[in-house]
Design a protein around this nucleic acid. Sequence first.
RNA 1: GCCAGCGUAGCUCAGCGGUAGAGCAACUCACUUGUAAUGAGUAGGUCAGGGGUUCGAGUCCCCUCGCUGGCUCCA
Length: 609
Amino acid sequence: MSSVESPVAQEKSEPIKLPKTSESEKLKRIRHTASHVMAMAVQRLFPEAHVTIGPWTENGFYYDFDKPEPFTEEDLKAIKKEMVKIIKQKLPLIREEVSRKEAKRRIEELQEPYKLEILDDIEGGPISIYHLGEQWWDLCAGPHVESTGELNPKAIEVESVAGAYWRGDENNPQLQRIYGTAWETPEQLAEYKRRKEEALRRDHRRLGKELGLFTFTDPVGPGLPLWTPKGTTLRTLLEDFLKDQQLKRGYSPVVTPHIGRVDLFKTSGHWQNYREDMFPLMAENEQAAAEEQGFVLKPMNCPFHIQIYKNELHSYRDLPIRLAEFGTVYRYEQSGELGGLTRVRGFTVDDSHLFVTPEQLDDEFLSVVDLILSVFQSLHLKNFKARLSFRDPESDKYIGSEQAWNKSENAIRRAVQKLEMDYFEGIGEAAFYGPKLDFIFQDVLEREWQLGTVQVDYNLPERFDLTYMAEDGTRKRPVMIHRAPFGSLERLIGILIEEYAGDFPLWLAPEQVRLLPVSQDQYDFVQQVANQMQQAGIRAKADMSGERLGKLIRNAEKQKVPVMAIVGAKEVQGNSLSVRTRASGELGNMDVGEAIQKLESAIASYEEF
RNA sequence: GCCAGCGUAGCUCAGCGGUAGAGCAACUCACUUGUAAUGAGUAGGUCAGGGGUUCGAGUCCCCUCGCUGGCUCCA
C-alpha cells in the first residue's frame, strides 16, 4: 500500500481553508488581475486574438478571446509561461479615468470590436481603464492588485479551453474561453487540486460503474440509462418510500402510457412551445405526416393526468384531487448536454398533478413544500437552494395571460414568505406554462441541477377547459399544481450517489448484509442465515466465492456493503455472527436472532446498524 | 446543436508506421484459510464503425457514432 493512501499521512496536515472568490476581497483582486495578465500574455503570443471579457469565478477566472485558430494544450503552457514573465516584471496596475469619447478613440486605435460593444453598454462616465505597465491596457472597472508582482506564479494555473458564445447567445460568434485558477499561496492551489481529485472519486458515473448500478450502451443510445438489478433495487426503494409518504397525504396513484396523440400536446401547448425538446412525430403514413397527425413520446405527464381528471365531473367536494405517477418521459436533449444520470433523454418523474380550488391553492402549495422538505430530510439532503423560477418579461416563450402569471407568481411568493425559507429568484427559469419553486443541488463538479419542483399553473386548466361544480352550482376553473419532490429518479440517484460517495444508508443499500465464511465448512450455515435474513426482508447475500477472509472483506468494502457478518467454526458452534460494519469496523459477536432483529429495526427506522 | 479533447480485453491503462500488451475481474486447479488482495494456470480484442494514404495503419488523414469538459438549453 502506498503512503499516499495511508490515513495517518492525511490526518497530519491541518485542513486548509479555501475561500470562495465572493467571500474574499483579496481573491477578487488576485483573480481579476490574473485574468488580465492572461489576456496580456495571450495578446503578446497571439497578436491576432481579440480580447472580450474576463471575470472571476468562484474558484478561479476565465477570459474569452476571439481568435481564428483554436488554442492547443501547448498554447496553454506557453500562455502560463508568458504570464509568469509578466508577473516577474512586477508591472504596476494603474487606473486611469478617461472620457467616453477618449475611451472610444483608444479602443478604435487598438481595433478591438468587442471592447467597443462593452463600452456602449457602460452607463454614465467617466470610463475607467487599467494599464498593466506601459504596453497593455484593458477596459475594466477593477479592482486589481497594485502590481503583477503580487501574484504568485506557483499559485496560478491555466486549466482548460472551451467554446463560449459572445454574450452567451448562440446566435453570436463563438469565442474561446480559457479557464484558469489563482490562489494566495501554492498550498491553497495544491489543496484546490486535491479537492478536485477527491470530488472525482465520488463522481456518480464512476461509482455507478464500480457498484454496478446502471449502464449506458451504444446500441441502446445516448442518454438512455439501463438499470441493473442493484440499481433497480435502489430505484424501487426510493419509489416505495415516496409512494408511502404520498399515500399518507391523500395522493391517488395513476398509470398513463408513454406515448399519446400529438393533438394532445397541441392542446397543452407543448407541440408549439416545447417541440425542439421532443422526439420526432411518429406518423402512421405519409398523409398523416403531412397533416402532422400521429403519436409522440411524452415529454411531460401533465396532459395525461388532465385527461384522467376530465374523465368524470368533479364537485368542489372532491377537490383537491392529487394524481400521482412515476411517469417516464422522453425529451430530445441536445447531444452536447447529455451526461451521466444528471441529464438524460429518458427519465422517470415522481410526478403529481393537484387539481385544487383557488381557495385551496395556498394550503396545498404549502403542504407540497412540506412534503418535499421532509423527503429531503429523510434522505439527508441538506445542500440545496430554493429558487423562485419566474418568467422573463422580455421573452415570448410563455403561454397564458399576464394576469394568470401574476397570480401564480404571487402564490409562490406568499408560500416561501410564510415558510420563511431562504430563496433566490431566477428570472427566465419558469416552465412555459407557469412559474416554479425549484430545489437546486450541486454535483461533484459544482454544476447545479434542479431536483424537486413545485409549479402553479392557471394555464393548462384553461387550455383543457377543466371545471368543477362549485357550491353555488356554477362551473368553476380549478388551479393545477405540478410537483415532483425528486424531480427525476435518475437525477436524484446521481446526486445521491455523490452525496453519499456510494455509501448508501442501510435502508437504501442494494445489498445490506454480506455473510463471509472463514472456510467452506461454514457454507451451509451462511447460506441458511442468508435465507433467514431474506425471509425477514433483509437484502443479505452469502459470499461463497472461496476466497480467503481478507479478500472477502476487501470485496465487501469495495462494494460498500454496510454490514458484514463473519462466520467461522466458533460462530457456527454458537449460532452467532461476528459483525463488522463499513462505518465502524468490528462490533463483536452477536446471536443470529439478535442480529436479525437489530437489522430489522435499524432498517425500519432509517438508521444505521 | 456549437468549440475542444478522448474512444485499445468486462474495468483501469501501456503501445503512437513493422507479428496486439499489463494489472484487476472472469474461468480452472491447488491451498481450507479469522477481520481490506493465497498461488499457479486458462480464456478473453475486426484496437468504436466506415473510408483513405502507405509495401505495411491502434499508430497518419477524412467521415460517422459515442464519451468527457465548456457554451447554449433543461428533471
